[in-house]
């Protein structure tokens, strides 16, 4: 298929989706009226939609809504605990050296953590306990306290839109800016890869 033919074929598909501008749509309709071959192709593409449309709805099984509510309740409680823990540990944290938490890649469940302190023997045991129950919460709180509103918004959107239960990585905010800057290039790379 030549490039022109491919573009024409893409326009047939876009016409099915109602996504052509009116001028191109009118041109295409005129071409279709004059070309049995184009009509046949349009019919072939349209049949896909005719097959997809009647696929049945997927009823939500009983109990799922309640399960969502349960998870929300747990999530709220967990976050409340973390806030209390952070408030209680604030004085200690103010005196303690800034800890560095390195978060290893997650392999199901909670991510394993390695905790190190810039001051040996400092607050490491305390932080380990925190880390076991609440991944990186204190460190994240430290970081978020320093973050600009823009960084915070990016991080929170990232948490919602991507697969993170918490903003777990101390390096996350730094990476955010890099990823935002590089996202255009990465997207283009991905696009090229998928095209190939």
């Amino acid at each position: 298929m030549s490039e022109d033919e491919r573009r024409h074929d893409e326009d047939l598909s876009a016409s099915i989706d109602g996504q052509l501008d009116p001028r191109r749509e009118a041109e295409l309709r005129a071409e279709l009226a004059a070309s049995p071959q184009a009509q046949a192709r349009m019919r072939a593409l349209s049949r896909v939609d005719e097959a997809l449309r009647p696929l049945p709805e997927t009823p939500v099984p009983a109990g799922i809504a309640e399960a969502v509510r349960g998870r929300i309740t747990d999530d709220l409680a967990r976050r409340r605990r973390l806030r209390l823990r952070w408030a209680g540990g604030a004085a200690l944290a103010a005196a303690a050296p800034l800890a560095l938490l390195l978060i290893l890649p997650r392999v199901g469940g909670e991510p394993p953590l390695e905790v190190a302190s810039s001051e040996p023997g400092g607050s490491r045991p305390e932080l380990e306990v925190v880390a076991e129950e609440a991944p990186a919460a204190d460190a994240v709180e430290d970081l978020l306290a320093e973050a600009s509103e823009e960084e915070l918004a990016i991080a929170l959107d990232y948490e919602v839109l991507a697969d993170l239960d918490w903003i777990e990585d101390l390096e996350l905010l730094e990476r955010m800016a890099d990823e935002q800057a590089a996202s255009g290039g990465a997207e283009r790379e991905e696009t090229r890869g998928e095209q190939g």
Binding site: I16, Q39, M42, S46, R47, D49, A51
Partner: peptide, 14 residues
């Protein structure tokens, strides 16, 4: 797949 008269469908804009 068939199940239709093969006529082009109206656009989905509506």
């Amino acid at each position: 797949w068939s199940g239709s008269d093969g006529a082009p469908r109206p656009t989905r804009a509506s």
